[in-house]
Nucleic acid binder design. Structure first.
Length: 678
DNA sequence: ACCGACCTAAACACGA
DNA sequence: GTCGTGTTTAGGTCGG
């Protein structure tokens, strides 16, 4: 599991499809557990709830972005009026920032756009999940910011009044200390985050890719304002008065000393700077953190290393530190591009944080499951293998952000390396016309973690994201899900539209593809039936053509094999998680979530089939197959019309659950298709 | 460079 | 003639 997670970090887009299937294989558990009552009749409601939740989140998301944008504008206005350096070149930056890049231009994101993003598969389900989580976290911070802002305003007001009343500067100092206190509070929040970041860095997660522009340790400020960034930078680099005394009285924090000490000076500068203080951004202090180090160690700026500017996507060569500073101020001055890049970086960091949290959780669960008494799994004093596992999985998630540091000229989808960026974006959603070729590569691109499979089920149903399966797999799945393991073409269509929102568009295209696949692949057998022609699956044929897909990734297969057959002590955790994942998979599959279960089982079969072929080339016998697979009627071709053949858990499941779902989804399954069609 | 898997587009045939 | 279905061909991407 870990290894397979690791693989994903290395895998090229195409290979991730295999990985996905692998993950799919033993990953439905958590999700299925989340659906304690997988009774199928309740599916409708669940679906609706999902949709509702999604829309709410979307709304929140957009609202947040608007709020942030407002703040940003406010900041910038103040900057423009009050600062010397702010050269806002409105023309230049805009073209650098792709409109499509949602994360980079949060201000323009509307729910509609979000929907478009969904449609364009810019984000994988997991990433969407993460994104939403981020937004929630963001909201918290936003509230904090608001609070802080209000306090600032109050203080300003007070200050003014006092000044008018001819009060003494001492009072101002009091106010200043009050401000400081607020700053401190916000600082704490930031530092907590920063700590996460540091821990990430300590694990080597942030510097895993040495060759890349990588991820410099950047402030993960949500409300970061570029203007202030620069301004603070100057403040810090030029003069920084030690006034920590007032600031350090917050012992409640378990922060690293570096954070506290480094951030302290920033407060002073903040306070002394009217612009900064009025703006009241909690992000304000953060630049300090990166600026401080280079004060002490003039040549160890996080953005500078090996004579190269480490600004994401930059890599400009700077002979010395001074030239670097020059470069930094000139090339990465305050403009939309830098702002956007900062945002992207923020998102990257946030995502890493979230991923870390997830993995920690996973680790804890694993340890708990293994009866390993881990009193403090958070601090990550794990044994070697565990550590590595965390790191690996981490790197997997990081594989995506990796692509983030994009050059200004070639903007790619930010947080979502998943998709191949712009081309996808523009084409897919807007014009229902022609899906761009690129797009289909996306399906391989979707990095799916084991955690969100079941969510994916719902996700794919509601979000127009292309499922990471081949047409052949989907067709087969549709057929296998049917009670009699046979479907008419139209029923296959319906399955597609029912199960995947993506296939409610561009019907002509994908239907053509479906027909094409049906005709092309030997594994699909057309059988004349009473009511016409139906399609069945020749499992043998299907298995035959499978191996190539997966065998390409030996390590992956190895993983699967080992996880299946061998139980080395080291793999205990792996096995445990496997068991955890697969067993409930069956139960849920048979109980309520047929599509998921069967889909998962199908994927499992694929894996088994692949392994079969790698182990031995016997395709008809099924010694190594999973029970589910064995239950499948293998020789559909011979007696495809015999319903009696359809037995075993799978058929039961599907029969029990198929019709309700079908009826329920009829609503949108017919209209859109016909609409979009021709 | 080649090959295989896959996707998309399109032309065509055929029957209802 | 239209539509749904089915077949086939062509051209493209991508990874091994």
């Amino acid at each position: 599991m870990f290894q397979c997670v690791f693989s994903s970090s290395v895998l090229q887009p195409h290979r991730t499809s295999c990985l996905f299937k692998h993950l799919f294989y033993h990953s439905a558990t958590p999700a299925s557990q989340k659906q304690p009552e997988p009774i199928y009749s309740k599916k409708t409601e669940i679906q609706r709830q999902t949709v509702r939740a999604l829309s709410v989140k979307l709304f929140i998301f957009s609202a947040l972005q608007v709020a942030r944008q407002l703040l940003l504008q406010q900041q910038q206005q103040q900057q423009v009026s009050g600062l010397k350096s702010p050269k806002r070149n409105d023309k230049q930056p805009a073209l650098q920032v792709p409109v499509s890049v949602a994360m980079m231009t949060p201000q323009v994101i509307t729910p509609q756009q979000m929907q478009q993003i969904l449609q364009q598969q810019v984000l994988s389900p997991q990433q969407l999940q993460v994104l939403l989580q981020q937004q929630q976290a963001l909201m918290l911070q936003q509230q904090l910011q608001e609070f802080y802002k209000k306090q600032q305003e109050q203080l300003q007001l007070q200050l003014l009044q006092q000044q008018h009343a001819g009060k003494q500067p001492k009072e101002q100092q009091q106010v200043a200390t009050q401000q400081l206190a607020f700053q401190q509070q916000l600082l704490q929040m930031q530092q907590l985050q920063q700590q996460h970041l540091l821990s990430l860095q300590r694990q080597g997660l942030l510097t895993i890719q040495p060759g890349q522009p990588a991820l410099p340790l950047q402030p993960l400020t949500q409300g970061m304002i570029p203007a202030e960034l620069q301004q603070l930078w100057k403040e810090v680099t030029s003069a920084h008065t030690p006034e920590e005394a007032t600031g350090n009285n917050h012992s409640s924090l378990d922060l690293t000393t570096t954070c506290v000490s480094s951030s302290a000076p920033s407060k002073t500068s903040l306070i002394m700077n009217p612009h900064a203080s009025t703006n009241g951004q909690l992000s304000v202090h953060t630049p300090k953190r990166e600026s401080l180090p280079h004060e002490e160690h003039p040549h160890s700026h996080p953005l500078y290393g090996h004579g190269v500017c480490k600004w994401p996507g930059c890599e400009a060569v700077c002979e010395d530190f001074q030239s670097f500073l020059k470069h930094l101020n000139s090339e990465h001055a305050l403009d939309d591009r830098s702002t956007a890049q900062c945002r992207v970086q923020m998102q990257v960091v946030q995502q890493l944080e979230l991923q870390l949290a997830k993995d920690k959780e996973r680790l804890q669960a694993m340890m708990t499951h293994l009866h390993v008494k881990s009193t403090e799994p958070k601090t990550a004093p794990q044994p070697l293998n565990l550590v590595s596992s965390v790191t690996l999985s981490k790197s997997a998630s990081e594989a995506s952000p990796q692509s983030l540091p994009h050059t200004p000229t070639t903007p790619t989808a930010p947080i979502t390396p998943v998709t191949q960026g712009p081309s996808v974006i523009t084409t897919t959603s807007m014009h229902t016309v022609g899906p761009i070729r690129r797009r289909y590569s996306d399906k391989y691109n979707v990095p799916i973690s084991s955690a969100d499979i079941a969510q994916n089920q719902e996700f794919y149903k509601n979000a127009e994201v292309r499922p990471p399966f081949t047409y052949a797999s989907l067709i087969r799945q549709a057929i296998l899900e049917s009670p009699e393991k046979q479907l008419t073409l139209n029923e296959i269509y319906n399955w597609f539209t029912r199960m995947f929102a993506y296939f409610r568009r561009n019907a002509a295209t994908w239907k053509n593809a479906v027909r094409h696949n049906l005709s092309l692949h030997k594994c699909f057998v057309r059988v004349e039936n009473v009511k016409g022609a139906v399609w069945t699956v020749d499992e043998v044929e299907f298995q035959k053509r499978r191996p190539q897909k997966i065998s390409g990734n030996p390590s992956l297969i190895k993983n699967m094999q080992s996880s299946h057959a061998y139980c080395t002590p080291l793999n205990a955790a792996l096995q445990a998680s496997m068991a955890e994942n697969s067993i409930p998979l069956y139960t849920t599959a048979s109980m309520g979530n047929p599509s998921l279960g069967t889909l998962a089982s199908a994927m499992r079969e694929e894996l088994n089939g692949a392994m079969e072929h790698t182990n031995s080339n016997e395709s008809d016998s099924s010694p190594g197959r999973s029970p589910l697979q064995a239950a499948h009627p293998v020789h559909v071709k011979e007696e495809p019309l015999d319903p009696e053949e359809a037995e075993g858990p799978l058929s039961l499941v599907t029969t029990a659950n198929h019709s309700p779902d079908f009826d329920q989804d009829r609503d949108y399954e017919d209209e859109p298709v016909n609409e979009d069609m021709e």
